[in-house]
């Protein structure tokens, strides 16, 4: 355990922050520019995982376990979200024969 912490602390914190930001940005851009619902879902996962990584890193640097606890919560949440999300996507696909998010614009005005 000590080993892991030391390994983590072996990389400077700034690197974690920059890396996570890049992954998060990739996720955001993916959500914004892609139209395939599944890709969007994956991008969202990317964003979540970026945050998870950051939480884990901060947790290790500060020696506070609660950050890692949050990570578990987020992972559980993400799993649930994916389950529901994929179900919705499947239903949408069955109805519209498409996973293009642009076709889902009925909920307006």
């Amino acid at each position: 355990m000590e080993n892991i912490v030391q390994n983590i602390q072996g990389v400077p914190l700034n690197h974690y922050i920059i890396f996570c930001s890049i992954i998060f940005a990739i996720g955001v851009i993916g959500v914004l520019i892609r139209r395939n619902v599944i890709i969007i879902m994956m991008s969202i996962e990317l964003m979540l995982n970026a945050v998870n990584l950051l939480l884990a890193a901060f947790s290790a640097y500060r020696g506070d376990a609660s950050g890692q606890v949050f990570v578990f919560f987020v992972m559980a949440l993400a799993a649930a979200e994916v389950a529901v999300g994929l179900a919705i996507i499947i239903m949408v696909y069955r109805n519209t024969k498409s996973v293009d998010i642009e076709t889902l614009s009925k909920l307006r005005w």
Binding site: V31, L32, R35, I101, R108
Partner: peptide, 10 residues
Amino acid sequence: QSGYVGFYIL
């Protein structure tokens, strides 16, 4: 409220 999710997220 255009209905385009992408717009909302933007």
